[in-house]
């Protein structure tokens, strides 16, 4: 991770062991690294699933109030938006302003479905051409599932245990027509790029990254659901319980370093996230002419899909942990693609 390498270079006297959930994290780590107890890192950079599962297990220590306030000051509205998830145990070190949006190819599907009912109809008529990744392993899946109660008009979108009747039913109904549940967001993007599926819920940042890297087909487009909100996703800094208080000064140095604008360009979005105060992130300019050109082409579409979206918070940690578990048991474990 370039930002972390830069931190070690600039602060050689501060030694901070950083645990991430995957060795190849380039955007958001997606699974809980369970070696905290054996490798005992000072800091873990985790995705929402890891944050939520670790929080419900009491793995993370409460962060100093000053660190959290500084996070809100530097990350603006996105940090506040994610507060139900982060609570007192995490800060946001990078964020993507929202999802889910539906990725599709204009040449294949010029007018994609824009609601839960029409998406279900599409999936029935075109079995195995739609998928969403496993929520426990992929941010795309988390955002998509968290948006369903709003799409379906469920009674209480913030109570997955008793207020999501229609959402759970809808997930069971569409299950036979889902190609499969991808094991990660990157894997799902690859499947889409290779033409294995026609529709994929993604986040805005992932779409822009795919555009900048050239991995997405040229005619790939982003469509928004009619009534779904934009739910942000983030990379979170947490501190395991075993870390002594005297280490916090080093950790705070790391946190403030990661939040510098120049470091935000190195980390994860490479400065290509939607810029400007309306998105909550001031992203510096792209670094190459090609990226700049791609950015200029993609930004209007990104701005358009974000413009009319409600910005809502992700589920609180305990609710998200419940959703991940129930999904694995009721949806993932019984997937039957009808063949």
């Amino acid at each position: 991770m370039p930002a972390l390498a830069e931190f070690s270079k600039q602060y050689p006297h501060l030694r901070v062991d950083i645990g991430t959930e995957a060795q190849d994290v380039d955007w958001v780590s997606t699974a809980l690294q369970d070696d905290l107890q054996t490798e005992r890192p000072d800091v873990a950079l985790v995705g929402a699933a890891a944050l939520a599962l670790g929080k419900t297990r009491g793995l993370w220590r409460v962060l100093p109030a000053g660190l959290r306030e500084a996070n809100h000051a530097s990350m603006g509205g996105l940090a506040a938006q994610m507060r139900p998830l982060t609570g007192e145990e995490a800060i946001v070190v990078s964020a993507d302003p929202g999802g889910p949006f539906l990725l599709h190819r204009r040449s294949v599907l010029s007018e994609p479905p824009r609601g839960a009912a029409t998406l279900l109809d599409y999936a029935r008529q075109n079995p195995q051409r739609f998928l969403y990744p496993r929520p426990s392993a992929a941010a795309f899946g988390q955002q998509f599932v968290m948006a369903l109660p709003y799409l379906l008009g469920d009674r209480n979108p913030s109570d997955a245990q008793s207020g999501w009747e229609q959402s759970w039913r809808w997930m069971r109904e569409i299950d036979p027509y889902v190609a499969y549940y991808a094991s990660g967001s990157g894997e799902a993007m690859q499947e889409f790029s290779e033409g294995g599926i026609d529709l994929l819920p993604v986040s805005l940042g992932a779409f822009l990254q795919g555009r900048m890297s050239g991995r997405l087909p040229e005619d790939a487009r982003l469509a928004s659901f009619d009534i779904a909100p934009a739910i942000p996703r983030g990379l979170f800094l947490v501190v395991p319980n075993h870390v002594p208080p005297e280490r916090m000064v080093h950790i705070e140095a790391l946190a403030s370093f990661l939040l510098r604008p120049e470091m935000q360009t190195l980390a994860f979005g490479r400065g290509l996230l939607p810029a400007g105060p309306e998105f909550g992130i001031d992203g510096p300019a792209p670094r190459t002419d090609a990226e700049k050109a791609a950015w200029d082409r993609a930004l209007p579409m990104a701005t358009a899909v974000m413009a009319a979206r409600r910005r809502l918070s992700p589920l609180p940690a305990d609710q998200l942990a419940f959703v991940l578990g129930r999904w694995d048991e009721e949806i993932g474990a019984t997937h039957n693609d009808g063949r």
Binding site: A22, S183, G186, E187, A188, G332, A333, H335
Partner: peptide
Amino acid sequence: SRRYVAPGGRIIDTANQG
């Protein structure tokens, strides 16, 4: 790989609650 290998290298037993 896309179905069962999590990004960190964990193989997911999808029929047994992950």
